[in-house]
């Protein structure tokens, strides 16, 4: 078989003149015989278990907070939650699906997707408040802003863990950027839930408690991604 796309030789002259020692081959083959690794089927089972666990935890969190329209018209809820869901679906497709490559999407694509998605969420919050001035001009107490932002962060943490765990140590190219994209993806799903459960539509509240946590999760994702999506040091 071929190594799944590995080409023999190429144009490298160096490869033909200097090769690794035969001892290395024996050492590597002996080492992998000593350290069994999960096959695709085993990995898929684990990934499915993590995904089901994450989905259940998210559902429990969502059920606990419930859906509360308050004084918001259904159109306002549909517009804000719909924008959130659209951003979340696009980010999930871009960041969580690798596009047929073991190395994920190019950094520029991930950064653009996150920037556009967060920008769209912020714009939707402002536009919604402008389109529905009665709800948009509501005064929300600071405590409600903080509580709602904290809940959004908690609801985003669960899908974030679900997205990161199966990719552990799997991104040698740009782990921090991938982590940020996964954080923003989880944040977008949490923002969608926030627009369903939170009765407030004031622009400042939506920006501070629904959209800002997306940026916070992206930042946390960058830090976590740098450490978890590529673990430096000798192979364990």
């Amino acid at each position: 078989m071929s190594a799944g796309g590995a080409r023999e030789g190429g144009t490298s002259g160096a490869a033909s003149s200097r090769g690794p020692s035969p001892d290395l081959r024996a050492r590597v083959l002996a080492e992998i015989a000593r350290t069994p690794a999960p096959t695709r089927r085993a990995h898929e089972r684990r990934a499915l278990a993590v995904a089901v666990g994450g989905a259940l935890a998210t559902a429990v969190l969502f059920a606990a907070s419930g859906v509360e329209r308050g004084t918001r018209p259904a159109e306002l809820v549909a517009f804000t939650a719909g924008t959130g869901a659209l951003a979340a679906v696009v980010l999930t497709r871009v960041s969580a699906r690798a596009g047929g490559s073991m190395l994920g999407r190019p950094a520029g694509v991930l950064v653009s997707a996150v920037t556009i998605a967060v920008g769209a969420l912020a714009l939707a919050a402002i536009v919604a408040a402008a389109l529905f001035p009665e709800q948009g001009s509501e005064v929300v107490v600071a405590r409600a802003n903080v509580t709602c932002a904290a809940l959004t962060l908690v609801q985003g943490a669960v899908p974030f863990v679900t997205l990161v765990l199966p990719r552990r140590d799997g991104d040698p190219v740009h782990p921090a950027i991938t982590g940020a994209a996964l954080g923003a993806t989880a944040g977008a799903w949490a923002a969608t839930l926030a627009y369903l459960r939170c009765p407030h539509a004031a622009a400042f509240h939506c920006l501070a408690a629904h959209v800002a946590p997306v940026a916070v999760l992206a930042a946390v994702g960058a830090i976590v991604g740098r450490r978890l999506l590529w673990e430096s040091g000798p192979s364990r």
């Binding site: 190594a3 695709r40 690798a98 073991m102 199966p166």
Partner: peptide
Amino acid sequence: GRFIPGAEV
């Protein structure tokens, strides 16, 4: 186990 079918190695 994570290898994507058809991905380039």
